Computed example of a mutant assay.
Amino acid sequence: MSKKCLIIGAAMLDIIMEIDRLPRSGEDIYAKAQKMTVGGCAYNAADIMKHFHAEHTLFAPLGTGMYAEVIEEELKKNGHESAVKSGRMDNGYCLCMVEADGERTFVTLPGIESVFEKEWFDSLNMEDYESVYVSGYEIEGAGGDVILDFLERSPELLVYYAPGPRISYIPAEKADRMYSLHPVLHLNETESLAASGADTAEEAAERLEEMTQNTVIITMGAGGVLLREEGRTSVIQAEKAEVADTIGAGDSHIGAVMAMRASGADFEKAVRTANKVSALVVGVKGPTLTKEQFEKGL
């Protein structure tokens, strides 16, 4: 049996509201539609790995409370199980406001997923794993140091790090510790500029490669994906997509990259396949694909 990827992060409740535009301060607007689903960066990435039949463990804590109950029920329905349960507090949720052009804005209430505990990792048999995924949301949170401690104790793991939109809020000390682990870095163009202080994605990729000494993947929407590997930069063309919303696009992309790499694909082939997957995800409402949508699209 092949070794697994440990997917560390959140399974949260996503409350998705479709609106014409974001309201101004003090304004009262109507939502056109609402959908409630399970999201969270780790869950979204794990769901794509499930479609690829890639071996993985979802290490996203389930707490105790109203949101946790809904999330656990949805996980079971969708063929997932979390390796962590805690009675400390409830899971968080995210209000996702989707404008008419598909752009999304998040308001997140953190929960159990922001307070990782050392004891949760003690149950893992590290011989089962060859790689690990980590989201920036959890590194920023109060449990971020616990996650970093675990990664530093497990230098044999290949780290995939997706810092996400909170990249500018992650303390420099935590960022430095993460970069010292030589992660494969996955982020979008805006995040890459914020992380590197560069003016262009190309320059950002070079700087970030120097910082991590590993591969850098920068998604640029319709502009494709910039791949920086072993001192060489290439741009891999995006797939055409009709955008319903952009929720989960980045999560699905890194999930596909990890699944393809686990199957032996090189980074260029992995990114090309990931581009197809993320194009499918932005074409549906919400962050995940059904089995039928995935198989038809690929």
Rank of each mutant, 00 (worst) to 15 (best):
Q34K: 15
A60F: 00
T57E: 06
I71R: 03
L75Y: 06
E73A: 09
T37C: 14
M66F: 11
Q34A: 15
R24M: 11
V38I: 11
K76W: 11
A31L: 07
M66V: 02
H56Q: 04
A54Q: 10
F59Q: 08
M49N: 08
E72S: 05
V38N: 13
G39C: 04
E73Q: 10
L22Q: 12
R21M: 11
G39Y: 12
E73S: 14
G63F: 03
E69M: 02
H53T: 05
T64M: 04
E74W: 14
G40Y: 00
I19N: 02
T37Y: 06
A45N: 06
M66E: 06
I48P: 03
Y30Q: 15
N44W: 09
R24P: 08
K50L: 09
K77M: 15
G39I: 08
A31V: 06
T57G: 01
K32H: 14
G63E: 00
A31F: 13
G39H: 07
G26Y: 05
I48E: 04
G40D: 04
E74G: 02
I48N: 01
E69I: 01
C41A: 15
L58G: 04
N44H: 06
L22P: 10
C41K: 11
L75C: 00
L75I: 10
R24D: 10
Y30N: 15
P23T: 03
A42Y: 11
K32E: 12
L22S: 05
K32V: 11
M36D: 10
E74T: 13
V38H: 13
I71M: 09
K35E: 13
I48T: 09
K76T: 14
K35T: 13
N44F: 05
L75P: 00
K76G: 12
V70W: 10
A60T: 05
E73T: 09
M66T: 09
K76A: 13
K32A: 13
R21Q: 11
R21W: 10
A42T: 12
I71T: 02
R21V: 01
E73W: 02
L75H: 00
A42I: 07
E74A: 07
D28I: 07
L22G: 06
A46V: 03
E72V: 02
Y30H: 15
A45P: 07
A60K: 00
L62K: 06
T37Q: 15
I71N: 08
S25W: 07
R21F: 11
E27K: 03
A46I: 01
C41V: 14
T64W: 02
E27A: 00
G65T: 05
E72F: 01
T37I: 13
E74L: 08
G26C: 07
A68M: 05
R24C: 06
C41R: 12
H51N: 03
D20M: 14
A42E: 11
C41I: 10
T37H: 04
V38Q: 01
V70D: 06
Y30D: 10
T37G: 08
F59G: 13
Q34R: 15
A33W: 04
D28G: 06
I29S: 05
H51W: 09
I19M: 01
L62W: 00
I19H: 09
F52N: 09
E73Y: 05
H51Y: 01
F52R: 12
M66L: 12
A60Y: 00
K35W: 14
F52S: 14
D28N: 07
I29Y: 07
R21S: 07
K76P: 00
